[in-house]
Design a protein around this nucleic acid. Structure first.
Lengths: 241, 241
DNA sequence: CTCCGCCAAGCTGTATACATACTATTCCAA
DNA sequence: TTGGAATAGTATGTATACAGCTTGGCGGAG
């Protein structure tokens, strides 16, 4: 399942994420091909996917550059994510099954374990958080919604948010997930949508309020992010492991 | 600007739209390459774009098929379009400039002309309708929103809707656009969002209520649709002509 | 000194050949 | 007759060569 094209996609994405490829810098197909150990063909495919993700931009003459993110872009990403994931939460609550509810509770229990104690395990938090949110999106049973959220809204900028979370923020995320589970258990779509909107909006303000270093990402976190983004469209995330 | 890859995209898209390629049928790269008069490379790129548009699906073994649309898929498409275009309308109203307002009024005047008289000119209606909606989306000034709406929500199923419109439906569309212009002129985002939500929801019910022939599309309409979809991400639609 | 145009180097677009993986059919054996 | 395995045919994945266009620098003319 790990074709050259997938590897190129993951590698280039990781290079952008980690700051190895600076924002705004040009991406040359042949150069990337050498670095990824594949030919230009899979690199071209990867660049097109990354362009659809809005991680890469092309100028008039088809040359590729690492996309630059303005504060306004970031706010828009959070706004759309809030809108779409609220909708997903509503649908998920209305369709929730006992089996899926158990799975989601498991993820959130693991998330709690990751942040319990003096030193929170941020990569583990990210992993469980991603599983939880993807579980909700899956439960919404809408292919379009899944595609949009996976490809366009699940951005590095979103993943990086957790880097700026302190212990209280992490704990609050856990409690908001618990609220969401309660809403799902009672099949209350309006409640679920409302909790999700709050959850994501709070994350946005935590992100913008934080005094973040614009540079690179902690290696362990970068690694977790890369693993999480390898197969964003995978139907059942559990089967990968 | 018309590269082989663009031509392949437009041609395959048109073949799917017109029903020439039946829903669910397999798409072979080499076969399509012959029909489009290009090699496999641009066809591959086109198929990937169409896959991102959800017009093409791939099975486990990477073989491509024309996507099949269930009634539920269609409702979801309308639901998402309603949500996202309402949001766009809100932002557009808040940011509206006199110049753009004039342009939009021009489109809607042309739309009125197209439906005045005993025999409405459906292709002209579609063209002006598309310009109007794209103008709104442009005015929202959100790259993410534009990308999502252009690539995922602007579906053939949406375009075909107008085929089921009778004269009253067409006239109602015109009047709803006028309401939207009034909302934009007064910079009332809430009003604009509300009008847009109504507009799209009504279109959905007209579509589902209609006793439509599942088959092919009137040639002139198919032609208009194809032209409209050639460069869905073009920044300024007017420059194309 | 500046500006325009030309030329060279480099990058992307396309075609094509080859490698790999799936499918379906056929044939043999139980 | 049915089930399974082998094989031929067909599809997609990747590498690579070449063509066309863009860019940037250099040189000559004003």
């Amino acid at each position: 399942m790990s074709s050259a094209s997938d590897r190129a996609y993951a590698a280039i994405r990781a290079m952008i994420l980690s700051g190895e490829l600076a924002s705004g810098s040009q991406l040359r197909e042949e150069h990337l091909a050498d670095r990824c150990g594949v030919s230009r063909t899979p690199v071209r495919e990867a660049l097109h996917r990354l362009e659809a993700d809005l991680l890469v931009r092309r100028n008039q003459t088809q040359r590729s550059f690492v996309a630059e993110w303005s504060p306004d872009d970031i706010e828009q990403a959070f706004e759309l994510r809030g809108m779409l994931e609220s909708h997903a939460a509503k649908r998920a609550a209305e369709r929730m099954t006992p089996h899926l509810l158990d799975r989601l509770r498991g993820y959130n229990a693991a998330l709690r374990a990751a942040i319990t104690g003096p030193y929170p395990d941020v990569p583990a938090f990210l992993t469980q958080n991603a599983r939880f949110h993807r579980g909700i999106i899956e439960a919404a049973e809408s292919a379009r919604l899944t595609t949009i959220l996976a490809r366009i809204v699940e951005q590095p900028i979103v993943w990086r948010t957790a880097q700026n979370f302190d212990h209280d923020d992490l704990a609050r995320s856990y409690r908001e997930h618990e609220d969401l589970l309660a809403a799902c258990a009672s099949h209350d779509g309006v409640w679920a949508a409302s909790v999700m909107a709050t959850h994501i909006r709070r994350a946005f303000h935590t992100y913008s309020g934080a005094d973040r270093a614009a540079g690179s990402v902690d290696p362990a976190t970068a690694d977790a992010i890369q693993r999480l983004n390898l197969y964003p469209n995978m139907a059942n995330f559990d089967d990968v492991s």
